[in-house]
Design a binder for these strands. Structure first.
Lengths: 147, 147
DNA sequence: TCAATATGTAACTACAATGATTACAGGTAA
DNA sequence: TTACCTGTAATCATTGTAGTTACATATTGA
């Protein structure tokens, strides 16, 4: 099991839109950078748009961020691209035997621990913004240009 | 996407073995409590055995914990049942375009953030033991028997 | 020794999610 | 009107999950 790469692609898209904000970030252009199909990019951009992270218009090439760089966290992207349903990162087996003391209690006992773990993960993602990622890209580029 | 219920079933199995330690926890008995097929239970028990969490022997009915209750964490179970590969909870799209400043940096920039988030999740799981779960089951049973 | 019973495991199935691809409807602008 | 874009549906190959059946292998009691 792995969380869909829609998440990392979503981050890629937002970062690219910012880095190339003076140009036109069409789905085809972004697809070449991500190395996938434009339709895949358009689908993910549709999710980012629905979540209020970017502005895109039918018929008009390009996209722009709908919020400030520093106001978009990785958690926002994670939620936007719908890779994990709320409180369902972990799945719990259904219909355990109610005639067994373990069976009739296990779900309620396990659930809060699973939610805690998922919350810890999400809090971590919330501490990183697209601005951080953009700056990291710029820093990496500066370092490498010196060699 | 959801992390396989093998994880919650694994917790169920270990808890049941402890609660019924005076009896015989055969795969068929456990399967009735979990409400699934004995072969599914045997497969998961094989993973728990391989990870050194339980003792089982071919031909001999039943199983017992291989370690102290308080020495088995949910993280141990999580790793044992192989629901997520090491550092691969999140997947990152492969082969982004190296001719693009975002494409050639994005993987290295994103990866540490993903690992941090996964680590936060795992640390949370590490703080809960099978002993905690067993005690929760017993406490729930006591509470409900009073009504 | 043999019959009964258990674990270990392979093979097969149905089902769902992912990611790629093609196709096309509908919007925009020169 | 033409060219190009976004939005979206349909299809496909691949993969993981969970259930099921079947059977080899191990153990124990009669």
């Amino acid at each position: 099991m792995s969380i869909s790469s829609r998440f990392s692609v979503g981050i890629h898209i937002l970062t690219l839109i910012e880095i190339d904000k003076d140009g036109v970030s069409s789905s085809e252009y972004i697809a070449r950078s991500v190395n996938t199909n434009p339709a895949v990019i358009r689908k993910i951009m549709g999710m980012l748009k629905k979540a209020g992270l970017i502005k895109v218009q039918p018929g008009i090439a390009g996209a722009e961020l709908a919020r400030d760089l520093s106001d978009i966290t990785l958690l926002d992207v994670y939620k936007a691209v719908n890779v994990v349903k709320d409180n369902e990162l972990f799945s719990i087996h259904e219909n355990p035997n109610p005639d067994c003391s373990v069976g009739r209690n296990i779900q309620n006992i396990i659930e809060p621990h699973f939610i805690s773990a998922q919350t810890a993960l999400e809090k971590t993602l919330e501490n990183v913004t697209i601005e951080n990622v953009v700056n990291d890209v710029k820093d990496n580029e500066k370092l490498n240009s010196k060699h």
